[in-house]
Amino acid sequence: MTKQFVRKRWHYVLTLAWAKGKYFELATFEGSVAPLPGHSRQQLFNHLYNSSVKRSNETPDAYVLFFSLEPDELVPEE
């Protein structure tokens, strides 16, 4: 009997800031992702950072103000 792999979903929140002269422009992104087996937390962070910068239409030199990655499931299945 083969074991079926179920991809776990993770909820993320990522807040970025871009220097705009004397001020900063901020943007917060959030969502749920299901990484493939073998992906590291670093790889997932890089993917989320790059896709968030792309969604913002800003330059890729953002400062990370906040990052959270937690299991998306609140109550485990029985």
Rank of each mutant, 00 (worst) to 15 (best):
residue 45 F to H: 04
residue 17 A to D: 07
residue 25 E to V: 09
residue 76 P to L: 07
residue 19 A to L: 14
residue 10 W to A: 05
residue 17 A to I: 00
residue 5 F to K: 10
residue 63 Y to K: 14
residue 75 V to C: 01
residue 52 S to F: 10
residue 59 T to P: 00
residue 30 E to W: 03
residue 35 P to E: 05
residue 22 K to W: 07
residue 59 T to Y: 11
residue 63 Y to G: 09
residue 60 P to M: 05
residue 76 P to M: 03
residue 31 G to P: 11
residue 60 P to V: 02
residue 52 S to G: 11
residue 36 L to F: 09
residue 42 Q to V: 08
residue 6 V to R: 10
residue 70 E to M: 10
residue 41 R to K: 14
residue 72 D to R: 09
residue 47 H to Q: 15
residue 45 F to G: 00
residue 78 E to R: 06
residue 28 T to E: 12
residue 55 R to A: 15
residue 71 P to K: 03
residue 32 S to M: 13
residue 57 N to C: 06
residue 45 F to Q: 01
residue 50 N to V: 01
residue 66 F to H: 13
residue 45 F to K: 00
residue 8 K to A: 15
residue 38 G to W: 12
residue 75 V to A: 04
residue 70 E to F: 03
residue 41 R to Q: 13
residue 75 V to I: 14
residue 47 H to M: 15
residue 6 V to Q: 07
residue 59 T to S: 14
residue 18 W to I: 07
residue 49 Y to W: 10
residue 65 L to R: 08
residue 23 Y to H: 13
residue 24 F to P: 00
residue 69 L to N: 03
residue 47 H to R: 15
residue 72 D to L: 08
residue 77 E to F: 07
residue 72 D to M: 05
residue 34 A to P: 06
residue 71 P to W: 00
residue 66 F to G: 02
residue 24 F to M: 04
residue 77 E to Q: 10
residue 26 L to N: 09
residue 18 W to Q: 04
residue 17 A to T: 00
residue 50 N to L: 08
residue 44 L to W: 02
residue 71 P to H: 05
residue 71 P to D: 08
residue 7 R to L: 08
residue 32 S to Y: 06
residue 64 V to E: 01
residue 30 E to P: 01
residue 71 P to M: 02
residue 10 W to G: 04
residue 12 Y to E: 06
residue 19 A to V: 12
residue 18 W to S: 06
residue 54 K to Y: 06
